[in-house]
Design a binder for these strands. Structure first.
Lengths: 257, 257
DNA sequence: GATATACTGTATATGATGTATACATTTTCG
DNA sequence: CGAAAATGTATACATCATATACAGTATATC
């Protein structure tokens, strides 16, 4: 922490310790040997492991080993594995926020926002495996939220309406991110793009989903649309849904304006 | 499995074993003692534990203990803990699907759908902690999807458009479900409804979120809208977002029709 | 009915995990 | 210099998922 920031430690303590660490809150140590490790090194190593072998492969011992230290050395920097997950999560949220371009349509900007969020899920497949336990609190995550609020700056809306739109668009981005990373994985595993989920499970589902019990799902499954076995004529599925959301937002703005 | 269903075992084997179990696919045993346990008993016990003590408390030994059996006895019924999680997930998806009411507006129906989904998250706080790894495959989950498709039955849309709307609405329901259960928990833990997230973290964030770094988030946070410290004038936040989604859908239907 | 077979629940064991604790070492402040 | 504090390590422990081997029991076949 910089000196002069007048941070009230009492209040900061109320944050989960991982969140505090993500804000760089660490009491500086005056004596004793300088740490050879650092939070950054630890988090980077953990992210490396998660990227390659999944979140389940991230154990304290594996992270320490990859750095050439003992398991317990990590606990000199973080208080628990939970901290590590919080830090990993926020570290990959450090994405470049595009420069503000005056006159750029907000729909376009929101599209960029959504795909940037989706990209995080795709680049770090484990990201979506960490459950959300509260409103975002860590700095990089909040920076992204700040971006979305910038896009809505000139909307004639109050704070709560903006927060609702933020929730709406962000949760859609999350859902798309999860799907996109699963598709990536299926393709990496050798399936062709069209057969993601399809060949693997489609055939089995067709035997189980009987028309009397699933009258409305059945025809869609049989046509191959549930498991995306046939080519999707509306093109990018995710883009389509986003356009509907943006339509809904535009409609609201029109009514208000 | 009922006889005469002509299920091709080969193809069914491609499903994750937990999914197969959720469909009731078990090779019937001809000889040997009758099982004293059952999948249902195991899953119910696990759900009970998760409801009371969270998903982390669900261990094979704890579940077995609560039933009065040894840990390993469970493995006579399921092949792994992963199976158990899949089964738990699908078990709580067994919600009553409302009767079809001719002439009922689809917006109303979709609202019911969303709140029914949210209810699952609220009744079983652990539900949202299980990461999604594929398109829904288990029967009760598919039954819910069938319901949503029923609502859209008379929409002049193709299968893919319907699937997109399904994704859109369901992911919003999931996001709301996560938020709702977190609010429930905060209230149960003694916070008043208005102070969910607020008292706990709001004060800390206000010290950390500086206006130069977060120019757009800062005013909203200070006003208390980010952490919902002050009363939300647009009423139910989640309902508001849903209305925007439905507006977007309605807009699309109008353009097509 | 006898016997082999297959299925049950159990006991035991293994390797991994997160983390508490105690310790030896090293650096820095008074 | 010597005390204090911080670092990395070694050891220990409880808990976990699960592999394996086994003893008992119900059924199918002879």
């Amino acid at each position: 922490m910089e000196i002069g920031d007048e941070i009230d430690d009492e209040i900061i303590q109320s944050l989960p310790s991982g969140v505090a660490l993500s804000w760089g809150i660490i009491k500086p140590s005056r004596r004793g040997p300088k740490g050879e490790l650092s939070i950054k090194k630890i988090v980077d190593a953990a992210i490396d492991i998660a990227d390659n072998d999944g979140l389940a492969a991230v154990s304290m011992s594996r992270v320490a080993q990859s750095l050439g230290y003992t398991t317990m050395s990590l606990y000199r920097y973080i208080t628990s594995k939970e901290d590590l997950l919080v830090l990993m999560q926020d570290a990959v949220c450090a994405i470049p926020i595009p420069q503000e371009v005056p006159g750029k349509p907000w729909r376009e900007e929101m599209g960029e926002y959504v795909w940037a969020c989706v990209d995080v899920f795709r680049k770090h497949a484990w990201y979506g495996d960490i459950p959300i336990t509260s409103v975002p609190l860590a700095p990089n995550n909040l920076q992204v939220i700040d971006w979305m609020l910038r896009i809505m700056r000139d909307f004639p809306l109050n704070d709560f309406e903006k927060m609702s739109f933020l929730l709406l668009v962000s949760s859609y981005a999350r859902a798309c991110g999860l799907i996109a990373r699963d598709m990536d994985k299926a393709i990496r595993d050798g399936a062709s793009p069209e057969t993601f989920g399809g060949i693997t499970y489609g055939a089995a589902l067709k035997q189980l989903v009987k028309p009397d019990r699933f009258p409305h799902l059945h025809p869609i499954l049989m046509a191959g649309a549930y498991t995306d076995e046939v080519e999707n004529p509306i093109g990018n599925d995710l883009d389509f849904g986003l356009e509907r959301i943006l339509d809904g937002i535009a409609h609201y703005l029109r009514e208000k304006g």
